[in-house]
Design a protein around this nucleic acid. Structure first.
Lengths: 134, 134
DNA sequence: CATTAACCTTCCAATGATAGCAAGGTCAAT
DNA sequence: ATTGACCTTGCTATCATTGGAAGGTTAATG
């Protein structure tokens, strides 16, 4: 027997790890389908909805964009998907992460070099500023 | 003899590496002082202005935020600054970069693990989606 | 039954750095 | 005089998220 409990947006937020604010936003931008409503207009979520929200939460924690998550949700919902499509999405994201990490790391190395050249005392002489200024 | 050439915003953009758009924006938000103007309203930049823009460009390339760059510009302009203040700013930024790198790296490792578990073929079985869904 | 607290609703605005467009004015050369 | 390349302002968008205001609903309490 499937349970058919219904939750309002606040409970769905707690259960899914996504804020009520963001759940509404995801509905606005079409990432999730429009929630059904009570007579008085409150959104209602069932266990399947919350399952999808949790899926989205995990994907978000891995740094996927809304657009990518939208594609992932599509594949997730398609029982005939090819797993190669999922893997390709993941690979693309890994590459993007790599580029970002590389870029940040380059900055870090340069900054560490600058910092190591600066006495960091009460005097005004500062190789860091001189470098930035050059 | 100091040169006192004057440049319009397009020339300043080319010379500094910051787009005209962003130069105006930096003026709007108070990062740089309001430029002087020709009679007809065009902004004018001298060599000192462009020097400051180049300083900003370098700082930006190192990932400093506008707010941090604002502080750096302040210290740069203050001939009596203590170099320790500059170094502290740099150290804080290095720490922030480290945190970001760590976070991205954690994502990457998890994704690589997921990808390695997925066949990536034409069949629908996909451990990646199963994991995200769990 | 009235009040109150904790919900919910929509709409609007802000973040940070950047880019785009549109409508219009200016400048220099042809 | 016209043209093209520049400049001006102002508004819009991106991306993911948060905040607030103003108002309606629900559930429990006195």
């Amino acid at each position: 027997m499937m349970e058919h409990e219904l939750f309002n947006i606040g409970q769905a937020a707690v259960k899914s790890g996504i804020s009520a604010k963001m759940i509404r936003h995801y509905e606005d931008v079409g990432l999730i389908p429009k929630a059904s409503r009570t007579f008085s207009g409150y959104r209602l979520y069932n266990n399947r909805d919350i399952h999808m929200l949790r899926f989205i939460c995990h994907a978000r924690d891995l740094g996927f964009s809304i657009k990518q998550i939208s594609e992932l949700v599509g594949l997730w919902s398609d029982k005939d998907r090819a797993s190669s499509k999922v893997k390709a999405l993941v690979r693309d994201h890994i590459i993007a992460l790599d580029e970002k990490i590389l870029s940040l790391n380059t900055m870090k190395i340069q900054l560490e070099h600058l910092a190591s050249c600066c006495n960091g005392d009460s005097r005004p002489e500062c190789p860091i500023l001189e470098e930035l200024s050059a």
